[in-house]
């Protein structure tokens, strides 16, 4: 087996095992939060997912800059793969956020800065995937996507700031108890383990999607070449 495949399979085994361990720790080991109760356990998914989603969009930025600079398709394939995974992760982030918000805040949704920014992030990168689907194939579509991949990332902190500003002007009544229980040390350790696990899973997904996309592009190119020779 080539070294890349060994690494990839290794990554898969490690992240799958660690995911099982995290599941066990979340439900069997870590103490229940004394204010929020059992529902707080969703934090061990919600927070790592948020971190990895952010990492994914950062890689979209890196791939986009790389593509506009070097114009080699591997940068574009990297950005595209990361964007797909990023949208998936942000979807999970929003869903876990909504599930967590209902019992704690008493509402499914509140226009809290982090929530709102995640929603905008999701919309921007859904637009990114739509743009890829509707653009002309090849270099032109890749360039359009790269431009959006850069703007999207620059825009995130501005959106966050603007929503915070907006909230101070229109203060909202927080329903139910505020979720500010202190984390004890076991909680903090588990959060760290979960974050590492999700990062490994993300790296596995990214490498897998990246190599698949590379093959897809090569097959397409070969097909085009065969057609032009006919």
């Amino acid at each position: 087996m080539p070294i890349g495949a060994v690494l990839k399979n290794g990554l898969f085994v490690v992240s799958a095992t660690m995911m099982l361990v995290v599941l066990y720790l979340v439900f069997m080991w870590v103490p229940t939060d004394n204010i929020q109760g059992t529902v707080q356990r969703i934090m061990y998914f919600h927070v790592p997912v948020a971190w990895v989603a952010f990492l994914a969009f950062f890689i979209v930025l890196v791939g986009s800059v790389g593509y506009l600079w070097k114009r080699t398709s591997k940068w574009d394939q990297l950005a595209y793969s990361a964007a797909e995974i990023g949208v998936l992760l942000t979807t999970l982030l929003l869903i876990t956020g909504i599930i967590w918000a209902k019992p704690i805040w008493g509402v499914w949704w509140t226009w809290e800065p982090r929530l709102t920014t995640s929603l905008m992030l999701w919309l921007i990168y859904v637009a990114y995937l739509m743009l890829r689907a509707y653009s002309p194939p090849g270099d032109q579509g890749a360039r359009y996507a790269a431009v959006l991949g850069i703007i999207g990332f620059i825009d995130v902190p501005i959106v966050y700031y603007s929503v915070k500003l907006w909230r101070t002007v229109h203060p909202q009544v927080i329903v139910g108890p505020a979720a500010t229980g202190e984390l004890d040390s076991s909680m903090r350790i588990l959060l760290l383990i979960a974050a590492v696990t999700f990062t490994l899973l993300f790296v596995y997904l990214l490498t897998d999607r990246f190599s698949l996309r590379k093959s897809e592009d090569e097959v397409e190119l070969a097909r085009g070449l065969a057609e032009s020779l006919r």
């Binding site: 921007i124 859904v126 739509m130 743009l131 509707y134 959006l148 999207g152 825009d155 603007s162 500003l165």
Partner: peptide, 17 residues
């Protein structure tokens, strides 16, 4: 469809401001 999809989420800070 593509123009509003690209444009609106990005200009949210302007709209808020």
């Amino acid at each position: 469809i593509m123009l509003p999809m690209l444009f609106l989420p990005v200009v949210v800070p302007i709209i808020i401001g």
